[in-house]
Amino acid sequence: MSPHGNPEVPASSASEVIRGAEQVPSGAPTPEAAATETKAAATTPASENQVPSIQPAVNHADRGAWGLWEVFVRSSRGLSHVHAGSLHAPDAAMALRNARDLYTRRNEGVSIWVVPADAIAASDPDAKGSFFESPQGKDYRHATYYTKSEGVKHL
């Protein structure tokens, strides 16, 4: 018993998560079973003439069985989904339910996308100079470049 005489309350959130299974939208994206795949690969004896497989950038086996998902929330109709954060879940259905509980407790969204984190390809920040085209000398891509029409109405 605790010093202040409080009975400890079991705080498992498991029932919260399981409730509402029928609300899982159909057509949810299929998760890459990165965790299980990586684990299987690790236990398969390496063979010399094995075809090299593509490895995920981050070894999901390190994270236990629950992979990492990125969460995108549409805050209201007419707007794009915007990245809200990430979470761990064993599959897409649980990822969606966890995302609802974690990122939309106060009506922050009307729609959620969850994406396996390692399914996202991102540009390399080190390659910034070469990857993003220089705007130098390309003023003509902006309306402000064209000054001759100044004073002409509705143009």
Binding site: P3, W66, D91
Partner: peptide, 29 residues
Amino acid sequence: AQRLERRREAHDDGAWVREAAAAYAAKQQ
């Protein structure tokens, strides 16, 4: 001591949930 003990308990008590969810996901996969 009490806080850590409680956290440990909750972690252990939740183990079956984490395992079951992972097993279910693997089966579906």
